[in-house]
Design a protein around this nucleic acid. Sequence first.
DNA 1: ACTGCTTCTTATCTTTTGTTAACGTCTCTT
DNA 2: AAGAGACGTTAACAAAAGATAAGAAGCAGT
Lengths: 195, 195
Amino acid sequence: MIDFEKLKTIYQIGKDLEAQDIYSLIKSAKNKTYAPSEYLIEEGTKRRDIFYLKKGLIRSFIVNEKGDEITMGLKWENHVVASPDIILHGQASRFYFQALEHTDVLLMDYDLLQNIISKNPKLEKSRKYIFQRMLKEAQERIESFVLYSPEERYIRYIESNPELINRVPNKYIANVLGITPVSLSRIRKRLATKK
Amino acid sequence: MIDFEKLKTIYQIGKDLEAQDIYSLIKSAKNKTYAPSEYLIEEGTKRRDIFYLKKGLIRSFIVNEKGDEITMGLKWENHVVASPDIILHGQASRFYFQALEHTDVLLMDYDLLQNIISKNPKLEKSRKYIFQRMLKEAQERIESFVLYSPEERYIRYIESNPELINRVPNKYIANVLGITPVSLSRIRKRLATKK
DNA sequence: ACTGCTTCTTATCTTTTGTTAACGTCTCTT
DNA sequence: AAGAGACGTTAACAAAAGATAAGAAGCAGT
């Protein structure tokens, strides 16, 4: 039976695909849904899943020595999500990936995906595109840490992601910016009184 | 005439290549040498060069509104160097890339390289490998900003790159860590007196 | 509607960082 | 050999951030 939902998503990810390529992907990808607070990936997992976010919001966090949860990243619609520990290092994930909203994903095994891509040259363009986009995001984030103060970082973050402030608790945003929630609260007050 | 130096380097980058692939790369790649303080890439450039560092040390920096040079990154042997503005954003480079030591590189046009890779499926493995390595590096750097204090960041940086401290002025390392040279000097003193 | 929990803010205090400037040391140049 | 720069350190002060705790506001669940 044809899963039109899935087909639509895959078609959006990899344009210019041939029927055979699309079929390969559909066969191995799975739709899945997560309720708020459910985990896509838990700490210690080695399952090499990679997720494409169709709808919803995911936070990744790590539990430090003190037992505090530190939010590393926030991802939403059209982002690709995977644990860098598993995919890039081949280790068990130190991170949790948790849905903050009702979240719809398309997921598949990373190695299987890479195999399919390697056997379907047309897909290489998509792989290159996704890697480049991830690198671009990472690069920009590093820049923000090196070049800007926490206050400037916050201004830039909400300016480039204005929808987020209504979807995510500030304490998570503080972590992403590399500061404490208390400090973010003070920054917000400074900015409010300046204007 | 055969350039054995070049051949050797290319062979190290892309293992399992066929003769035709190697020939494609050799034909388009160029060896180049830079003296200390020479620029590989200058601000404003759009030349889509990508460099493989055979020997030497490169710092990338940006000049901010105050006119200060902020060092964004340091790269040395076996790293791949390119301007993210040019390669990932298609814009003119905001960064300078400057040799700090006598530096030997293999360079080629990025688009040409991508073309060659696309036409030589065997090379896809190398592309994937390089992208993954760059992502891994970026990911780890972001982690260090989110999870650790400047002091911890410094300790980790010199522990994982012990050779660097003797090759690079501290003021550049301070920038890379997202702090001022004065602050790094204080951190170094704190660490020295602790022990 | 009430209770409990989470989030955000505010306050206080300590620690760290940024800023600016001065000083010693070292290197390179002339 | 003298002078100029570059680099690292130190000092002094202001500004910001971390840590901890307490209170207010909002939300969820019963």
